[in-house]
């Protein structure tokens, strides 16, 4: 049972990590990085580290993705669609 949980979360994590490196759209890359953090926090729970899992889920998947998204907005890689443009 534990082996399957660990195996599935490692596979999800590695697929998302490859997606981080090779996707073209940077917003999708940010989402994939968030998936890496979430799979990692599942893995931490399976490895009996609930403190670290909470930190990874709150900080790695939450705050870190917001920081990346804000940066993409500031460097012009993510344009907001306003009513005027439509």
């Amino acid at each position: 049972m534990l082996v399957w949980v660990v195996l599935i979360s490692v596979v999800v994590m590695l697929v998302a990590a490859v997606a981080v490196l090779f996707l073209k759209d940077f917003l999708a890359v940010t989402a994939a990085a968030s998936v890496v953090s979430l799979a990692l926090s599942v893995l931490f729970v399976a490895l009996q580290a609930p403190d670290v899992a909470l930190a990874e889920a709150a900080v790695g998947a939450g705050v870190s993705s917001v920081i990346f998204a804000l940066t993409l907005r500031r460097v012009g890689l993510w344009k907001l669609e306003t009513k005027k443009d439509k």
Partner: peptide
């Protein structure tokens, strides 16, 4: 809750601080 129960349950200042920031 997560900050104040940091010495009893998983969690604590770092995790709760991130949630407060959010």
């Amino acid at each position: 809750y997560i900050i104040l129960h940091g010495h009893l349950t998983p969690g604590g200042g770092f995790q709760g601080g991130a949630i407060l920031a959010a």
